[in-house]
Amino acid sequence: MAWPTGASPYGIGVRDAVVRGVGPRSTDGVIRVWYPAHVPSSLAARRYFDGPDELQIMTRGLGWLLSARGVRALGGWRTRGHTNAPPAAGRLPVVFFSHGFTGFVGQNTHLCERLAAAGYLVISIAYPEAAASICAPDGSSNVMSAAQRRRLVGDQFARAMVRLLRARSIDAENRAISEVTAVDTLARENDRWSVHLTAMLDALVPIDQRRARVDTATAAILDAGDWSRVALMGMSFGGSTSANVAHLDERARAAINLDGMQQGDILLGQDIRVPLLVMSSAGSMLPSGRVVNDLHYESRRTATGRVQRVLVADAGHYAFSDLVAFGARRTRGLLDLGTVDPERMLTLVADTVTAFLGDALEPGGDSGTDETEVSP
């Protein structure tokens, strides 16, 4: 697999590290960092799962979704990143990426590489007990169990979702969305993710903290960041978490939600504090034709001018991850990728995100309000 990439004066470096003190296990603090780099000609680009340990651990965690053979095929992709390449100097805007429930730190490698090539420092966070697999640099690992994968889907969740999908009026949809925000399992998980993301901000934004909490080589990479320009970005549950935390935490200047159904009621009928890009799939559309997040982020659609909404009508949920480029027609159907062309989807997401961040993280920047439907 050789995926599309934009022209850039930078090479791309990749480093895995552990942020100490965010949990009792080293796997609790795992991050992956992409950054602009000076890449020696002798340094080969890394594979998607780099080395036998990561491949084995990801096979255990993702085998239920892709099969062991599928995970090996995915792991063999050659990326554009280079492990531990020397960082380029600069004052780089910082983007925190949050994967989805049962996702993993590298699930949006293409997007993170594109941002690094455009001059961003990107930090992907592994969420304990919510990532399919976590592989720490010291060799320790954590693999999500089948019971943990099922923990969000209980009777209360099922009833609320059935009412939402069967709603035949705007009022009925509104009531059902309010019920979904009150589902106990989702509320507990939402709180847990928000706490973890906030703990990562606490550990990495202040210079004294990050130099005490990560190894020296990682600290040198992170010191190139402009920590006054921080954006929170995520896919699925991670996208919802990014919006929630960005609304409350003044260290965040912008947020991006890639097809995440917004959790909790903090942004239901409220104006989000920061510029927000929300990209949605066809599966997020309600019977009325509205998108499930249409009641979030802005209490009045033109109140703040801060929300950019993009509907990708031919994309399924996982199409907002690297999996959009994976598998033949039958596999693509099972993965809920939709009918979107893989190269077009990867490019669309990367271009849209890069343009949004270029506006939102500029001094005084604001993305403006723009509602767009993207069709085949």
Rank of each mutant, 00 (worst) to 15 (best):
A132I: 04
L66C: 07
V153L: 09
N142L: 12
G51Y: 00
E54K: 10
G76N: 14
A89P: 11
Q56A: 14
V94K: 04
G100I: 01
T83S: 04
R60Y: 08
H110E: 13
R114A: 10
G61P: 09
R78E: 01
T79D: 03
F49G: 13
A136G: 00
Y48Q: 13
V71I: 00
R78I: 10
A146M: 12
A126M: 08
N142E: 15
T102H: 06
H110P: 15
D53C: 08
A160L: 05
R80L: 09
T79C: 11
S133V: 04
S141E: 07
L115K: 06
A89V: 07
L65Y: 09
R80N: 07
A160S: 05
A131W: 02
P93S: 12
T79S: 11
C135N: 02
A68H: 05
A136M: 10
D155K: 09
D155C: 09
D155F: 10
S141Q: 00
L152Q: 11
V95A: 10
R150Q: 14
A89I: 08
G75F: 14
A160R: 07
Q107L: 15
R80S: 01
D138Y: 04
T83W: 10
W77S: 00
Q148D: 02
L115I: 11
L62A: 11
W77H: 00
Q56Y: 11
P87Y: 03
F97Q: 04
P52K: 05
Q156P: 02
N84S: 12
D155P: 13
R60G: 12
Y127F: 14
R78Y: 11
L55P: 10
A117L: 04
F96T: 00
E113H: 03
S145K: 08
L66S: 01
A68I: 08
G103R: 07
Q107F: 15
A146E: 02
R78Q: 01
S145P: 07
C135A: 06
R72F: 08
L115P: 12
Q148A: 00
E54G: 06
P137C: 07
P86F: 04
V153E: 09
I134G: 09
W64G: 01
F101L: 13
L121G: 00
S98N: 11
A147G: 03
W77A: 13
D138P: 03
G100K: 14
A85C: 05
S145V: 02
F96Y: 13
L74D: 12
V122P: 06
S67D: 15
L62N: 09
E54M: 15
Q56R: 15
D138R: 01
A132E: 03
T59P: 10
R91G: 03
A147K: 09
V71R: 01
C135H: 08
P86E: 00
W77Q: 07
E129V: 05
T109Q: 14
G63F: 15
N108R: 14
T109W: 13
P87T: 15
M161C: 09
F101A: 08
S133T: 07
A131M: 07
V143Y: 07
R78V: 12
R151I: 06
A118I: 06
T102E: 11
C135D: 13
